[in-house]
Design a binder for these strands. Structure first.
Length: 886
RNA sequence: GCCGAAGUGGCGGAAUUGGCAGACGCGCAUGGUUCAGGUCCAUGUACUCGCAAGGGUGUGGGGGUUCGAGUCCCUUCUUCGGCACCA
């Protein structure tokens, strides 16, 4: 039998504790947890990351930082319990762990609270932070508070400003007038990413308005290709998140093609549908061209009209000469607007207005009518499309409605005789619209006979050669509007001088401090614009009077790079030391990032952008912020998301008061796999509490004897010992495996429960002396080690009862001994025709013959086989025996 | 409409490679302990036929592959999430 030595702690060990008095057998988290919390608080370096020189491999585990609302909710507890379990595990595995926490402290709620309670946002926010920090410490999370980051402090936000200036220098931030999303509740603009179903992400009932404003934008589109491309390497991210980002970025390959507008005299108005023909226009102007974007240039011979977005410049140009057209377009836009307001977001009925003008298809010279259509979006592609009804569903629908020409230019490939009937009917008209691309071109001049994809390349090249088009990649992603007309955010470090125009604040003048004494009102416009001592400044170029930018930055700027600040949180010379970031991020970024899926687009796309931007600034080496991402499920109650309005909020404080922090956090990990939604059931917390009490009682009962066995050889001499050690090492193996891979902590905890069940079941034998002190010690010590990631308070208490004085985090994670874990006998099911008829117990490693004869010895099997003819016997050693009879 | 995920006891969930379905916990039932209980202990608990021994059925539905399917394939339904005229 394999033997191993119990390893006593290296520290000078204290005396063996007295056998516990009867009363101490009762698990009392209300006594244990505060005691340990105080002990931990007295050791500021307990959870501190070590300098790179420590020589250990690094591990950066990070949970998304919270907004300091003032109260921790169950979602936080779950999120941080996952991260904390991992951090503790990695410490015990000997890693140098960085496990920090901070506060996403700017944002609107502070202003709302200021309005409501007349408390300054700063005061409100900092008080909330203090309260939540206490809550987190009470739960026992292992954060390195020396690296705490608070985004609303000038020590942090000055670097937002510094980044802004760097980006300005490189043209990565710019100011432009554009249509922006406006939330009337927030009284500010929103980024596209902050609009959910046409409403504000914070006010789900408030539809956003479109306003024309001059705003600062970050040029996220400069990295659109990289953002899309690098997504493919992020195999440690959930596929769901990658898909969402892929859709959001929306890369699509296609081509631009110029259609020349035809002069009036060539117009063939007679071809236009009579009921839509508009009066001829009086004046002539230079017609110009309209450029369309298409992903199906191969279908261009089938283009039977050109469709402009209502906002397209050519629409305006044509309408300017034609009041009737102007009115018709106006009417269509109005109708669309009111329809949108009524039925938020379905597909609207397609509508169009014929402009009376024609354009020339550069491929075949055909004149096609130019329409204005409500289904063409100005902010995608070029705001103009060629309409190919035969091969596009939307165009087909439109053409049907307005009786436009349909010309088939793509047919299914004829295939060989074995193909199905529809594919063979190559000469027949395909069912329209026919959009499949594994097809062949017809009626397409020199391109006829080509496959679609071949034609796409050839036709783009043809267009480029002849100067009327080119291949083009288009993105759905738009630049990130970062201006906010709010007070509680980072001031944008820009000045407006009458003489010099836009002038950046010189770096040495940073930070541009947010004034603290300010009246928050609900009036329109940026609150800072009403603070003259903030607004009035001196132009650094000419020394004349200048006006400060009074908008603040989107708070998503703050969270785009906060995790780099943790690597060097006290730095007053730079956002962080690149060497510190290089150590903790390495090539691949954060080792494990954990947060809610609600940030799949917002935070996670901005921070990917920021990382790429910083890499180009030479600050970091990694291309992506996080190598692995884990999105935990929501905490729900009675099938619904916890919310005040539903009255189903469970407060962590309550749970901790009733059952303790260990039970609360352990339940959060036990009730469901971490990536699924978790339905909070208080009875379940009570169950965990019972389990912890059982562990405590067992340990307290036996630790005195166990400690006596410390340092002695562990041998499995008796059957009980063998059984216990086997279960112990199987459990170690199972828990260790789950930490390495799939993170199903619910089954880890179940495995530990099984171990404890076995221990208590063997209690009579333990008491009777059938289990050596050494084995008892091994069982208890390893049980405590396994428990530490999930229930750190109880683990600490039991650890000290075992005579240990060092932190559990410095104790090595147990190693499973395969020899001890191995079973010596296994039960093998025996089936007849696939139905279970018996179970045989055979020694592990029994071969086919042994199994087969053992199975045949079974009475039930003999009965089942009697009078039947054995067709086949399937014997899979270690798995099963199946007799096939007839 | 498109894309993705998921459907297993009364409930949360387990079954890591196609090999005893229901681990672990909750709840429930019976018995015990207790002055009392949001206590503790023991036993049982998928459904169904049967006094029992022992059968039969069973992982949303239907079909298939296989000696064998919760797991693989086809099809269909439901729920949840994301996107939604993206050319």
């Amino acid at each position: 039998m394999t033997a191993l030595i119990n390893s006593p702690s290296s520290s000078s060990k204290s005396s063996v504790p007295e056998p516990p008095a009867q009363q101490e057998l009762r698990y009392n988290p209300a006594e244990i947890e505060p005691r340990w919390q105080a002990a931990w608080a007295a050791q500021p370096d307990l959870y501190a990351a070590e300098p790179p020189a420590c020589g250990k491999p690094k591990y950066y585990v990070l949970e998304m930082l919270p907004y300091p609302s003032g109260k921790l909710h169950m979602g936080h507890v779950r999120n941080y319990s996952i991260g904390d379990a991992l951090a503790r595990h990695m410490w015990m595995r000997g890693y140098n762990v960085l496990h920090p926490m901070g506060w996403d402290a700017f944002g609107l709620p502070a202003e709302n609270a200021a309005l409501k309670n007349n408390t300054p946002p700063r005061e409100w926010t900092l008080a909330n932070i203090a309260a939540m920090r206490v809550q987190m410490q009470r739960v026992g999370f292992s954060y390195d508070w020396q690296r705490e980051v608070t985004t609303c402090l000038p020590e942090y936000y000055r670097w937002n400003q510094w980044f802004f200036l760097q980006m300005y220098k490189r043209g990565l931030v710019y100011r432009k007038q554009s249509k922006v999303n406006w939330c009337s509740e927030c009284a500010t603009v929103l980024a596209n990413e902050q609009v959910v179903d046409g409403c504000c992400w914070r006010h789900e009932e408030t539809p956003v308005e479109q306003r024309n404003l001059e705003q600062w934008f970050a040029r996220t589109t400069a990295y659109a290709d990289a953002l899309q491309h690098d997504l493919e390497q992020l195999d440690g991210w959930p596929e769901k998140v990658r898909t969402m980002q892929r859709n959001w970025i929306g890369r699509s390959e296609g081509a631009l093609v110029d259609f020349a507008m035809l002069p009036r005299e060539k117009q063939t108005d007679a071809d236009a549908p009579v009921e839509l023909r508009l009066t001829a226009r009086a004046s002539e102007s230079s017609p110009g061209t309209v450029t369309v974007f298409t992903t199906r240039i191969d279908t261009i011979y089938g283009a039977t009209s050109l469709q402009l977005a209502p906002e397209h410049p050519m629409t305006a140009q044509l309408a300017a000469e034609d009041p009737a057209l102007a009115r018709a377009v106006q009417a269509m836009v109005e109708q669309q607007k009111s329809a949108r307001e009524k039925d938020a977001f379905g597909t609207l009925e397609k509508q169009g207005v014929f402009t009376g003008s024609y354009a020339k298809n550069p491929f075949n010279g055909a004149s096609v009518p130019v329409w204005v259509a409500n289904y063409v979006l100005m902010d995608y592609g070029t705001g103009a499309i060629m309409s190919v009804p035969a091969h596009d569903e939307r165009d087909y629908e439109f053409a049907q409605k307005y009786k436009l020409d349909v010309q088939v230019v793509v047919l299914p490939r004829r295939t060989d005789a074995s193909a199905d009937a529809s594919a063979q009917a190559g000469d027949a008209e395909p069912l329209l619209p026919y959009t499949a691309e594994d097809s062949l071109l017809i009626n397409s001049g020199e391109f006829s006979g080509m496959g679609c994809e071949e034609a796409q390349r050839a036709m783009a090249a043809h267009a480029q050669k002849n100067g009327f088009g080119q291949a083009k990649v288009t993105f759905r992603l738009k630049d990130w509007g970062v201006s906010r007309q709010r007070y509680w955010g980072t001031p944008i470090p820009m000045l407006y001088c009458e003489k010099d125009g836009i002038v950046p604040v010189p770096e040495e003048q940073l930070p541009v401090l947010l004034p603290e004494k300010i009246a928050i009102t609900q009036q329109g416009g940026s609150p800072l614009s009403r603070v003259p001592e903030f607004v009035n400044a001196v132009c650094p170029k000419c020394g004349g009077a200048a006006r400060r930018e009074t908008d603040t930055m989107d708070t998503f700027v703050d969270s785009s790079w906060y995790f780099y600040r943790y690597t060097d949180a006290q730095n007053s010379k730079a956002p962080f030391d690149p060497a510190a970031a290089a150590y903790w991020f390495g090539e691949q970024g954060i080792d494990q990032y954990i947060g809610g899926v609600e940030h799949a687009i917002l935070h996670l796309i901005y921070s990917r952008f920021w990382t790429k931007m910083m890499r180009d600034l030479g600050l970091v080496q990694n291309a992506e912020p996080a190598h692995r991402l884990f999105t935990q499920g929501m905490v729900i109650k009675n099938g619904a998301k916890m919310s005040k309005s539903k009255g189903n909020v469970v407060s962590p404080d309550d749970m901790i008061a009733r059952y303790g922090a260990d039970a609360t956090r352990m339940y959060a990990l036990f009730a469901a796999p971490p990536d699924r939604d978790l339905d909070w059931q208080e009875d379940g917390v009570a169950g965990i509490s019972r389990f912890l009490a059982k562990v405590y009682r067992f340990a307290a009962q036996h630790n005195a004897r166990a400690v006596a066995g410390r340092g002695q050889d562990v041998t499995a001499a008796t059957p009980v010992e063998r059984k216990l050690l086997r279960k112990l090492h199987q459990t170690i193996a199972r828990v260790t495996l789950d930490f390495a891979g799939r993170w199903h902590f619910n089954t880890c905890i179940a495995a530990i429960m099984e171990l404890v069940n076995d221990l208590t079941a063997a209690e009579a034998e333990i008491t009777a002396g059938s289990v050596s002190d050494a084995v008892l010690y091994a069982a208890l010590r390893n049980l405590v080690l396994l428990l530490n990631p999930f229930a750190p308070y109880l683990a600490a208490e039991l650890w000290s009862q075992l005579g240990e004085t060092d932190s559990l985090l410095r104790a090595p994670w147990p190693q499973a001994d395969a020899a001890l874990a191995a079973e010596d006998e296994i039960e093998v099911p025996v089936q007849v025709n696939g139905k279970l008829r018996a179970v045989v117990t055979v020694p592990v490693g029994s071969g086919e013959d042994v199994l087969r004869s053992a199975a045949l010895e079974q009475e039930k099997i003999q009965a089942a086989l009697a009078g039947k003819q054995l067709v086949k016997a399937i014997v899979v050693p270690g798995k099963l025996v199946n007799f096939v009879v007839k």
